[in-house]
């Protein structure tokens, strides 16, 4: 049977963590609540208290400065979608949100909620990992920072502790040159989660040399994976020397990190083959966005 629960509304991060501390482990945070309400209805979670953080407007922002892009945890997927013209990385993230749910659900759903749900097939997570994002986690003791890669601990498990709240995602922008990123996925139909996905972020310095490569592999392990050895194989090359063959090799190295399973959605072998292609296409797309010819 679905659990019965009471409702509390927090007006600030401090209030939210105080309510979590007060009510204990069966109190659960509702951000947009689109995953939580569903999981409660499906009896996957049985909260006794709902702590609604929807009204914490101080965490609803998307800000850009020279150091990077800050996305407040309570920014909705709809506001991320509408931020496309503010920065080319936001254009790319906006395109990702259009693959997620429906317009009505995107007005409810939040970026922070999507990350805290920690689905291995989540759409934003591989891009954030590729972009080397960090998250800020709030607690009564202050804020701490964790890399996006270390944030995910397992299916529906994150680094956020029992009396903590995800506050912000920070995407660093390079001091020199520019970063371009891309995300590709395979889905069965619209309004579907990815069977497998991949993302790449490539930074090219003002000298035309690739200074940093980030990769994110999704739905091929309980958490989002990166591939430092594959990244290193591309770093240091001149943009003008990059070829399709080189990118295919990098994608093949990266795909070796995948540990896919077979489930009702896809077989392990299919996921293994496709993640390589998703990464190759993401890399090709990122290089093309830099003006590189392949």
């Amino acid at each position: 049977m679905k659990s019965a629960f009471t409702y509390e509304r927090a007006g600030s991060p401090a209030e939210a963590v105080a309510l979590l501390a007060k009510h204990g482990p069966d109190a659960m945070i509702w951000a947009g609540g689109t995953d939580m309400t569903l999981q409660w209805q499906q009896e996957k979670v049985s909260p006794t208290v709902c702590i609604d953080i929807r009204d914490i407007s101080e965490l609803d922002y998307i800000e850009i400065d020279n150091s990077g892009i800050r996305i407040g945890a309570m920014a909705s997927l709809a506001s991320l979608e509408r931020s496309a013209d503010r920065h080319h990385i936001l254009t790319m993230l906006s395109d990702i949100t259009k693959l997620m749910a429906t317009p009505q659900t995107r007005t409810l759903a939040t970026v922070g909620g999507n990350l805290c749900n920690a689905s291995p097939a989540a759409d934003l997570s591989p891009a954030f990992v590729a972009l080397d994002a960090t998250v800020k986690i709030f607690s009564a003791l202050g804020a701490r920072k964790v890399s996006m890669l270390d944030f995910f601990k397992g299916v529906n498990k994150t680094e956020v502790g029992p009396a903590e709240l995800l506050e912000e995602v920070f995407i660093p922008l390079p001091d020199d040159g520019d970063v371009q990123a891309s995300y590709k996925r395979i889905d069965r139909t619209v309004v579907d989660i990815a069977l497998v996905n991949g993302s790449a972020a490539v930074t090219v310095g003002s000298d035309g040399v690739i200074s940093k490569v980030g990769l994110g592999l999704g739905a091929v392990a309980p958490i989002i994976l990166n591939a430092p050895d594959a990244s290193a194989a591309l770093e240091g090359l001149k943009l003008s020397d990059v070829t399709r063959e080189k990118l295919a090799k990098v994608a093949a190295i990266a795909a070796k990190h995948a540990k896919p399973i077979t489930d009702v959605r896809a077989s392990a072998g299919y996921r293994q083959d496709m993640v390589e292609i998703m990464l190759r296409r993401s890399l090709e797309d990122s290089i093309s966005k830099h003006g590189g010819t392949l």
Binding site: Y7, R9, T37, L38, P103, Q104, L108
Partner: peptide
């Protein structure tokens, strides 16, 4: 526009 099936009444 919001999907009222995914939203709690109290929200």
């Amino acid at each position: 526009p919001m999907t009222s099936c995914l939203m709690l009444a109290q929200q």
